[in-house]
Design a protein around this nucleic acid. Structure first.
Lengths: 115, 115
DNA sequence: CATACATTCACCCACATGGGTGAATGTTCA
DNA sequence: TGAACATTCACCCATGTGGGTGAATGTATG
């Protein structure tokens, strides 16, 4: 089955630690160690999470000497957003149709039992 | 780390087979076997995928005799959408700020080197 | 009742992942 | 150069998952 990129993006944000990392990076860029200190997991675990986010294109890395500075890149969320919105639109339409149906039913009932 | 529901929703849609199942269910409800026939995986694999989608609340099951009829429930995508939109908004703001910055820089340059 | 059909359950396998520890590598700086 | 620091690499472990097969369960129907 195709869809490699969406797999990675959705997979990356399906972990709450990684979502927290993204939230942290939204306020400002940070080093790996800084991120590790902000969460109750080891430095190495943090490093792995960052790699997952990087693979999905959601985090960019700039090596400055011995520091690796991470920053948020929300670009890849574009496609994910489009995918979700498609279903939300479908859903809204479906709810609207249901509403129309109920409305019609009610009118029919009124016609059959007037007041 | 909290965030259980988003984990399940994002995790569910991070697999392209499951996204295909959702796409199929968007056109009409279907039985487990019907879905299994539509994809190059076994009936049992399909059943497992459906369970994942059900756990995330994206698919509802109605048992009619010996048939289990699945239907799409896009409701849980609401929260997922909100999460993504938050970052997209951040991203748009950031791009706008960058644009303003470039604009300002350009004006400064013009002031320094007038025509 | 007996049979066919729909679905799940109970396993198996290979592989990814989220967590950890300790060592290796690379960079800064006194 | 040598020491301190930042990060990754190479492992280990438990668990989940995507795939499979074969048996068990439950329902419909001749």
């Amino acid at each position: 089955m195709e869809g490699h990129r969406l797999d990675q993006v959705f997979g990356a944000v399906s972990d709450s630690t990684r979502r927290a990392i993204l939230a942290r990076l939204a306020s400002s860029e940070a080093r790996v160690t800084e991120l590790a200190e902000a969460f109750p997991i080891s430095l190495n675990s943090t490093s792995k999470h960052i790699r997952v986010l990087e693979r999905a294109g959601l985090v960019r890395r700039e090596v400055r000497g011995r520091d690796h500075v991470l920053s948020l890149n929300a670009g890849p969320l574009e496609e994910a957003s489009a995918w979700i919105e498609h279903y939300r639109r479908f859903w809204d339409d479906r709810l609207a149709a249901l509403d129309t149906f109920i409305q019609t039913k009610r009118e029919q009932t009124h016609r059959r039992n007037p007041r």
